[in-house]
Computed example of a mutant assay.
Amino acid sequence: MKLLLTGGAGYIGSHVLLSCLEAGHDAIVLDDFSNSSREALTRVEALTGRHFSLYEGDIRDATMLEQIFKDNKIDAVLHFAGLKAVGESVQKPLDYYDVNVGGSVTLAKAMAQAGVYRVVFSSTASVYGDQEKMPLTEENVPGEAASPYARTKRMVEQVFEDLCISDQRWSVAILRYFNPVGAHPSGQIGEDPLGEPANLAPFAMQVAVGRRQSLAVFGDDYPTPDGTGVRDYIHVMDLAEGHLAAVNFLTKNSGFGVWNLGTGRGHSVLDVVRELENITGKPLPKRIASRRPGDTAQCWADPSRAATDLGWKAKRGLSDMLTDHWRWQEQNPKGYNK
Rank of each mutant, 00 (worst) to 15 (best):
F160M: 15
D130T: 00
V273A: 04
S304F: 00
S122T: 09
A40D: 06
E66A: 13
S37D: 04
V119I: 15
P148W: 12
Y97S: 07
A114D: 04
T42H: 14
V258H: 00
T152V: 08
Q188H: 09
V101Y: 14
A85D: 07
S123T: 06
W326D: 01
V230F: 08
P303D: 05
E39P: 00
A110K: 08
P193I: 02
V16W: 06
L310A: 01
D238C: 07
D61E: 12
I189T: 03
V258G: 03
K2D: 00
A204S: 10
K338S: 06
A145I: 03
E139M: 11
M111L: 13
V29H: 08
D226I: 07
H243K: 08
Y96I: 12
R292V: 00
V99W: 10
K2Y: 02
L194S: 10
D324R: 02
S268H: 07
H25L: 04
R211V: 01
I279R: 06
H79G: 09
A297P: 11
F69W: 08
Q158S: 11
L200I: 03
Q188C: 02
Q329L: 13
T323G: 02
V16G: 04
E66F: 00
A204T: 03
G103V: 09
I28W: 04
Y149C: 01
N179K: 10
C20V: 02
S166R: 15
R151F: 08
S254D: 14
F121N: 12
C164T: 15
G187I: 06
A27L: 07
G7P: 07
Q158W: 11
P197D: 05
D61L: 11
R212A: 08
P135T: 07
A23G: 13
L65D: 01
L54S: 05
V269L: 12
G219C: 13
S36R: 07
A246P: 05
N72R: 09
C164M: 15
S14F: 05
V44W: 11
E56S: 14
V207R: 03
T308S: 03
P283F: 07
L136Y: 13
P225F: 12
H79L: 13
R176A: 02
Q168N: 14
Y117E: 05
T224E: 07
A9Q: 01
E39I: 08
Y117W: 12
D32S: 14
Y97V: 07
I28N: 02
V119S: 12
W300Y: 12
A62F: 13
P180V: 02
K252Y: 00
P283G: 06
G87N: 14
N332E: 05
W300H: 01
F218G: 00
E330Y: 13
D31C: 09
Y117I: 04
P148C: 13
S166H: 15
V127Q: 05
Y96K: 15
S147M: 14
